[in-house]
Amino acid sequence: MVVSEESSRTVYNSLKGVGVQLVSALPETWLVHLIRLAEEDPDMTLVRVNKEEEAVGISAGAHLAGKTSAMLMQNHGFFASINGIVSFAMLYRIPLLMIISYRGGMGERDTWQTEGGRVTEPVLQALGINYTMLDSRDTVTHRIKEAHVLAESSLRPVALLLTRDLMWED
């Protein structure tokens, strides 16, 4: 059982394809290759944050400065950044491209991930955040492109949920 390098590369290349120049991240198992790809890319600014909410401010600063950014985090990190999302990104109409690893769903073996998995989509829905799944390499590029387009046209956060089917190779 390993994290899929091929899927990670597809996601990373798709982010590059929509012009992402800055990536903020807080590591988690499924994001290991994505973060490494950002680190090895001389054209990418990688900011490793201590808490995911910092990334909202960093992305807001990048946006105001004319740069496209993406946030890499786990669903629990998304929970930890909600005040920033509401009180900065939504209030100030800042587009955010949030790539969230959707832990705790069907097939999850780690007990500690399971509560967060149950409430991830209800919380996104309660916040009115448009989201879609990244669950197959065939559709990753198209969905990332569409999410980026919507974030920029609506000036709001959008979320892409990285699923087990995409990220994990049994």
Partner: peptide, 8 residues
């Protein structure tokens, strides 16, 4: 954090 995003 916003200052960090702007300055980078």
């Amino acid at each position: 954090s916003t200052g960090l995003g702007l300055s980078l």
